[in-house]
């Protein structure tokens, strides 16, 4: 079966005044449909850059990136916007939900950009909000919601377009441990329903709950079998 995501020899360099700074070095990564993958690495390891490339927010210096059978590196700005809209569901560390919109309106946002008519948009957004357990909070503004609830809104927003991958960047970073665990449990649940999830984290305790762990250190990615953590 064709993988959802396939990266071959991805390199990313930044050119600073003093010379070339290699952030990603020959990264190879494959994600199959239904995977729950965590990318684990300390800060400065290049994991944010990797996530930006996966999320089509950034382009690699060299390499090959196929997402859902499409070559990302050939795309222009408008095609990339469409890929971000339809193929990727972003979940950010600090939720990034718009403070002046209700939970429902926030979830509708990606559907607006894909041109879904109003009535369908609303029904879809409501269904997804129910699924993340916010049926009674649809018309609340973000400042009326707890951190965990806000992150659920963000997850609902990420899922509403039915993307190929849910891409979560430190999704528990701004939450307390209990709430963070609940969010990861939600991820596990969604994954059991067949949703592909890529989660970036520096927290090993969170990372181990994914089916697969990929380590990233100094721009080099290595995969290992899931095994008990030995410090």
């Amino acid at each position: 079966m064709q993988p959802v995501l396939s990266m071959r020899n991805i390199c990313k360099s930044y050119y600073t005044g003093t010379g070339e700074l290699k952030v990603l070095k020959n990264v190879n990564l494959t994600v199959q449909k239904g995977d729950f993958l965590s990318i684990l690495g300390p800060s400065g390891s290049g994991k944010t850059t990797l996530m930006n490339i996966i999320g089509c927010l950034d382009t690699p210096t060299s390499g090959k990136y196929i997402l859902s059978g499409r070559n990302i590196l050939d795309m222009d700005e408008f095609e990339l916007a469409s890929v971000r809209n339809r193929e990727i569901g972003f979940i950010f560390q600090n939720f990034c939900i718009l403070p002046r919109l209700t939970a429902l309106q926030n979830v509708e946002l990606p559907l607006i950009y894909s041109g879904v008519p109003f009535s369908i948009r609303k029904t879809k957004a409501m269904e997804i909000l129910e699924r993340v357990g916010l049926a009674d909070k649809m018309h609340s503004l973000p400042n009326q919601l707890s951190g965990g609830q806000q992150q659920r809104v963000a997850i609902a927003r990420a899922m509403v377009t039915n993307p190929s991958i849910l891409l979560a960047d430190e999704p528990t970073g701004a939450l307390d441990q209990k709430t963070g665990n609940q969010i990861v449990s939600l991820f596990e649940e969604l994954n059991r329903d067949g949703i592909t999830i890529v989660m970036i984290t520096h927290d090993r305790n969170i990372a181990v709950r994914a089916g697969r762990i990929v380590h990233i250190l100094d721009g080099i990615v290595s995969e290992q079998e899931l095994k008990p953590f030995v410090s």
Partner: peptide
């Protein structure tokens, strides 16, 4: 700026 970045991540085109 953040809002613009978010909208772009969610699929807003430069035109939008």
């Amino acid at each position: 700026t953040t809002e613009i970045g978010l909208r772009k991540a969610l699929g807003a085109t430069p035109y939008t």
